[in-house]
């Protein structure tokens, strides 16, 4: 088992952002995490990689319970993530950004080894031409790819992708989807938060749905997209409901 999330709960003051969520992830799979805006998806990520201390429940990663660990310890164990709102190290070059990922990730590579990995990964995500530029000078699509590249450089067992497709144009989406497939082909397990339904339905082995912090459905993409409660939840978000329905017709 790659990841077991059991009864995870997170309160902020009186607000329950994540409420008693349980699911697990098999090795080598892609798990899609969907839900309307504000459903607590990013918060759940932050609970999984120890950015937030849990209010309740446990997260077990490859047999090791993560409660109380620091984010860097989780990183060393082989979990990497991207941020929904990109966080490039602006003044450092694109290459340095990825070298950080390789140097301090699961293997803690030496600088020289890390540079080699960084160059391969930059090539893989198509940023090699920008390697020498300051990360702050990239456009949004490039910054998204940099986030991904940094996480990949850590050579993780598990990759948490927080809306890496958002804000990309259709051809960039196609591009990114191909990259994610290749990552899975390397044996890396993935949990991805995404609003672009056709992408997530195509990529995911299984999908879980969060609404108001609670898990309301899980299963294969087909099962989930026909689930009454899920459709109900998305009707609160007409735009997404529309898209979800369209996907189904297509």
């Amino acid at each position: 088992m790659m990841l077991e999330v059991k009864n995870v709960t997170k309160h902020f003051g009186g607000l329950t952002a994540v409420n008693d969520v349980s699911f697990d992830l098999q090795e080598g799979q892609i798990l899609g995490l969907i839900g309307p805006n504000g459903a607590g998806k990013t918060t759940l990520f932050n609970c999984i990689n120890s950015v937030y201390p849990l209010s309740g429940g446990t997260v077990t990663f490859r047999g090791r319970q993560l409660n109380g660990l620091k984010t860097y310890q989780v990183a060393h164990l082989g979990m990497a993530r991207t941020h929904q709102i990109v966080r490039p190290l602006n003044e450092l070059t694109v290459r340095q950004n990825t070298v950080v990922g390789a140097c301090f990730g699961r293997h803690g590579h030496t600088l020289r080894a890390a540079e080699k990995i960084a160059d391969e990964v930059l090539d893989f995500v198509g940023l090699a031409a920008r390697a020498g530029m300051p990360a702050g000078s990239l456009n949004v699509a490039q910054k998204k790819r940099l986030e991904l590249a940094r996480a990949l450089c850590a050579q993780p067992y598990l990759l948490l992708l927080d809306e890496v497709l958002a804000g990309l144009n259709p051809s960039e989406v196609v591009n990114m989807v191909a990259i994610i497939r290749k990552i899975r082909a390397q044996g890396i397990s993935i949990i991805m938060i995404e609003h672009i339904m056709h992408a997530i339905m195509n990529l995911s082995d299984r999908v879980i749905v969060l609404n108001y912090g609670s898990l309301i459905a899980q299963g294969t993409p087909d099962e989930v997209s026909q689930n009454e409660e899920v459709i109900q939840a998305y009707l609160g978000d007409p735009d997404l409901a529309e898209r979800l329905l369209e996907e189904e017709r297509a």
Binding site: R87, L89, E91, C103, F104, L111, A114
Partner: peptide
Amino acid sequence: KFGLGLMAIREDEDAAEVMGVV
């Protein structure tokens, strides 16, 4: 490598920790 970690902290300490910088 140590210096790279420092500069990562300078740019974004929390993001650096998520990447594994102690």
